[in-house]
Simulated assay, not measured.
Amino acid sequence: MMGPEKWPHGRWGRKWRRSRMPNPHKLACVTLAVLSLGMATAASAAYPEKPITLIVPFSPGGASDQAARALAAATSARLGANQIIVVNKDGAGGLIGSSEVYKAKPDGYTLLLARVATHTTVPAVREVPYDPMNWAVLGMLETNPVTCATSKDKPYKTFKELIAAIKASPEKITYSSAGPGTILHLAAVMLIEKSKIGDPQKIATHIPYKGGGPAALAAVKGEVDFVCQSYNEMSAHIKSGALRALIVLGNERLADVPDAPTSKELGIDGMEIAVGWSGLMGPPGMDPEAVKFWVSLLGEVKNNKAWQDGVKRLGSVPSIWSPAETVSFMKNALEKMKQIAKELGIKL
């Protein structure tokens, strides 16, 4: 290597020496670019690097809570130390917990167990503090057939007997729900309206509770006369005999309650829209790497037999769909429910 004593001298020598020495500005830029690339790669590869909060916008024990805990169990091995932490934040028909996630930092560490109430029925009948279609939709998880039931101690043996009682005693027959505008509330209103026995919002008295679990328990205790509820939130009560299933909304009977007729069988059309569902979502603009991670992980959960069997035991239908399929379903359901709410004059 040429030492300083052998470097060229004079003007030509000064230019030669400058050409051989590194440019500090260029060196700093290159170093910064390399470091930034390394940090970005490390960050994307590290997700998740801490536990993930999954907010359930309803009380413990309901369909959303069950769905969240089933997902947490199914992903525990894959997530390792960075487990899902289920947090129940109920109130306002699911709006309180949903709003918190909507405003959360979109880094993938705060997710929502979305429900038909938070993204379809409640937005169809009232103003909500978020855009129901502007979320990082990660996928559908399950669907929940809706069943109407009454306590074993109530006199109603069939759905027709219940409707006759409502007609005979206006405003005296009561029903529970997870809150105004939830699918449990609107399902009852739709059934009464289609039975043509009077004003569907007045002839029976609506008593809201903070979640599907408490709403079902209210029917078990006889605090209300009936409840229209996602079957998975009532399956244990129905199987134990504490509740009597009167009708299944939709076109197909449930294997667990083969004696309960469907709304279609009873000549009540259009009730198939009254179906519960659970989905996984993040705040708008969620980190693309986190979105990619969850879409991939849900694909793995979809083929997890233990998860499938667990969901079925709870009375739900395993239904993991892609983000695009989920968005299409949500949009269609929201439009239909808005139309129904307008026709029934429901506005909260």
Rank of each mutant, 00 (worst) to 15 (best):
T147Q: 11
T147N: 04
T147S: 13
C148S: 11
C148K: 13
A149I: 10
A149K: 02
T150Q: 06
T150W: 08
S151N: 01
S151V: 07
S151Q: 03
K152H: 11
K152A: 15
K152M: 09
K152Y: 14
D153M: 04
K154A: 15
K154F: 14
P155G: 12
P155N: 11
P155T: 10
Y156I: 07
Y156F: 15
Y156R: 04
K157D: 14
T158P: 03
F159Y: 15
F159V: 06
F159S: 08
K160C: 13
E161S: 14
L162C: 08
L162D: 02
L162N: 01
I163Y: 05
I163W: 03
I163D: 07
I163E: 12
A164I: 05
A164T: 11
A165L: 02
A165F: 00
A165G: 01
A165V: 02
K167D: 09
K167M: 08
A168R: 07
S169L: 01
S169W: 00
S169G: 04
S169Y: 10
P170V: 05
P170L: 01
P170Q: 05
P170R: 01
P170F: 03
P170G: 04
P170M: 04
E171H: 08
K172C: 00
Y175R: 03
Y175P: 11
S176N: 02
S176H: 03
S177L: 01
S177A: 02
A178F: 04
G179K: 10
G179C: 12
G179T: 08
G179N: 10
P180D: 05
P180T: 09
P180C: 06
G181F: 10
G181C: 14
T182D: 02
L184N: 13
L184H: 12
H185L: 10
H185N: 15
L186P: 00
L186I: 05
A187V: 03
A187W: 01
A187M: 09
A188E: 01
A188G: 04
A188S: 14
A188C: 10
A188Q: 14
V189L: 13
M190R: 13
M190Q: 12
M190G: 09
M190V: 14
L191P: 07
L191E: 01
I192N: 05
I192H: 04
I192V: 15
E193G: 08
E193R: 12
E193H: 15
I197R: 07
I197Y: 02
I197K: 05
G198C: 00
G198E: 03
D199R: 04
D199M: 00
P200I: 08
P200R: 04
Q201M: 15
Q201I: 03
K202M: 08
K202C: 01
K202F: 13
A204E: 13
A204H: 03
A204G: 02
A204Q: 07
T205F: 11
T205P: 06
H206N: 07
H206M: 14
H206Q: 09
H206P: 00
H206E: 14
I207G: 01
I207R: 14
I207V: 14
I207W: 09
I207F: 08
I207L: 11
I207M: 08
P208S: 09
P208M: 12
Y209F: 15
Y209S: 11
K210Y: 13
K210N: 15
G211Q: 05
G211I: 12
G211F: 11
G211H: 10
G212W: 03
G212V: 10
P214G: 13
A216F: 09
L217D: 13
A218F: 06
A218M: 13
A218G: 05
A218Y: 04
A219M: 01
A219H: 07
A219V: 04
A219W: 00
